Computed example of a mutant assay.
Amino acid sequence: MFTADFWKATAERAVRTFAQSLVAVLTAGATNLFDVDWQAALATAGLATFLAVLTAIGAAKAGRPGPGLTETTERAAIAPTPAPATGTS
């Protein structure tokens, strides 16, 4: 949790969460941009972002290193691959 890589990954997820939740609120709550309650939309996206950061911090000690509980493709790429099975059938 105290590494630059952790905070880079967390920042990327926070930005992605903010954008996704803002788009969800905008498309669900209004028929055009003039009907949007921007204060509520930005507050909702901000809360979702805050929760994403808290989730990353809470998950930092669980599972593999990184801000999430699941294995990412980057971590999967550096995981050693098992040796092929030898023997005859």
Rank of each mutant, 00 (worst) to 15 (best):
L33C: 11
L33T: 10
L33Q: 10
L33Y: 14
L33F: 14
F34D: 11
F34I: 06
D35S: 12
D35L: 14
D35E: 15
D35W: 05
D35A: 14
V36M: 11
V36C: 06
D37V: 10
D37Y: 02
W38R: 01
W38T: 06
W38C: 04
Q39M: 10
Q39W: 01
Q39Y: 02
Q39F: 07
A40F: 02
A40P: 08
A41N: 07
L42T: 11
A43P: 00
T44R: 09
T44G: 04
A45Y: 00
A45N: 03
L47N: 07
L47F: 01
A48Y: 00
A48P: 01
A48M: 08
T49V: 10
T49C: 09
F50K: 06
F50A: 08
L51C: 00
L51Y: 00
L51H: 01
L51T: 01
A52G: 00
A52R: 11
A52E: 12
A52Y: 00
A52F: 02
V53M: 06
V53G: 07
T55H: 10
T55C: 00
T55G: 04
A56M: 02
A56Y: 04
A56D: 13
A56E: 05
I57M: 12
I57L: 15
I57R: 07
I57S: 09
A59H: 08
A59Y: 08
A59G: 02
A59P: 00
K61R: 05
K61H: 09
K61V: 07
K61S: 15
K61M: 06
A62W: 13
A62N: 10
A62P: 04
G63Y: 09
R64F: 10
P65R: 03
P65W: 02
P65I: 09
P65L: 02
G66V: 04
P67E: 08
P67T: 02
P67Y: 05
P67C: 05
P67M: 05
G68H: 07
G68K: 12
G68W: 13
L69H: 03
L69N: 07
L69T: 07
T70Y: 11
E71A: 06
T73S: 13
E74Y: 11
R75K: 15
R75W: 04
A76I: 09
A76G: 03
I78E: 11
I78H: 07
I78D: 09
I78A: 12
I78S: 08
